[in-house]
């Protein structure tokens, strides 16, 4: 059974459809990346999925059961964790008291609670700060504390809205590692982020949102095989213009683009490995001084730009 399913989920703000008829299925144990430009509806979708906001229309099923705002489904609420993009905290509490409060809200008791508190503090590397006031924490620490709060009760389904935005590279890696660890422990994670390279590394599935619609939702490998073009990176010692002319005549070569930083030519290529070998042979035969020849694929960022962002802009 899927852990999360939505049917025609819609949220309208005034005349603007922030989320438009989103039908989505997420399987247990996945890390589902939600990507899209600003205003695509990612945050609104997550806020509805966590029952912070009420949908204008549509249905949410968690573990097959309808999920709505209110007191009616405490059992389902225990399965959810949520880190919003602005993670407000209680500055007057210490780190320990803050987490203790949320652990109690989620019915963790006695020794089990204390053990889990220590575990989570260890996981987010805040053990040293357990007695510090939250007001004194850095942005990265606050972000990790917010993450700790959301996983204190071992949720089956965790929603992270832009969890690494504004963090330095070290903190980003830390958060990424925590997400991977949570997945290994069996938590399903839905994460939205602008930093697509991070998502590419950890996600098993992705959804691309554009103007409130979910334009793509599939396993990452499937997206790559369907949407990612094969590319070649070719370098010459001399004669870049001649290389371009030679490539333009080749039947399997699409567009070319010079990557300025590396001085390599990026080539859209529709052939297989044998085709690439034939191409290399023909270039050498033509007397071009080839110094580099790599086979690669479009990454998530390029797919995203191609699919969503370019259409939106």
């Amino acid at each position: 059974m899927s852990i999360l399913k939505t049917q025609n989920l819609t949220k309208q703000f005034d005349r603007h459809l922030a989320v438009n008829n989103v039908t989505l299925t997420i399987e247990p144990g996945e890390i589902y990346g939600l990507i899209g430009p600003n205003g695509a509806g990612k945050t609104t979708l997550i806020r509805m999925l966590t029952a912070v906001d009420e949908p204008s229309f549509g249905e949410i099923l968690i573990q097959g059961q309808p999920f709505r705002q209110g007191d009616r489904n405490p059992a389902l609420k225990r399965q959810l964790g949520y880190v919003p993009d602005d993670y407000p905290l209680y500055d007057e509490l210490t780190v320990w008291d803050y987490l203790d409060y949320f652990a109690r809200l989620y019915f963790l008791r006695g020794e089990e609670r204390l053990r889990r508190l220590r575990e989570v503090l260890e996981m987010v590397a805040l053990t040293e700060k357990r007695d510090s006031l939250i007001a004194t924490l850095s942005r990265g620490m606050r972000q990790r504390l917010s993450l700790a709060r959301s996983i204190i009760h071992r949720p089956a389904l965790l929603f992270l809205d832009e969890p690494v935005s504004g963090l330095d590279p070290v903190a980003r890696v830390q958060v990424r590692n925590i997400i991977k660890q949570l997945q290994q422990e069996g938590t399903t994670v839905v994460v939205s982020s602008h930093i697509l390279s991070d998502l590419e590394e950890i996600c098993s599935s992705i959804g691309i949102m554009e103007l409130g619609r979910l334009v793509e939702s599939a396993r990452l490998q499937e997206v790559y095989s369907r949407l990612s073009k094969q590319q070649l990176l070719i370098g010459v010692v001399d004669g870049m213009e001649r290389l371009r002319q030679t490539l333009a005549e080749h039947p399997l070569v699409g567009g070319t683009e010079l990557v300025l930083a590396s001085g390599l030519l990026k080539v859209d290529f529709s052939g297989d490995q044998m085709g690439a070998a034939d191409l290399l042979r023909s270039l050498v035969t033509a007397g071009l001084p080839i110094c580099e020849f790599h086979q690669t694929k479009e990454n998530l960022e390029e797919i995203f730009f191609k699919m969503g962002y370019q259409r939106t802009s």
Binding site: T50, A51, V52, Q69, D71, P74, A75, K77, R78, L80, Y82, P84, D86, P88, L89, Y90, F102, L105, Y106, F107, R149
Partner: peptide, 16 residues
């Protein structure tokens, strides 16, 4: 004003 009630709202504890 701070938005901290959102987390409490989504907790399994009853509003009462």
């Amino acid at each position: 004003f701070r938005g901290t009630l959102s987390f409490i709202r989504i907790s399994p504890r009853s509003s009462s």
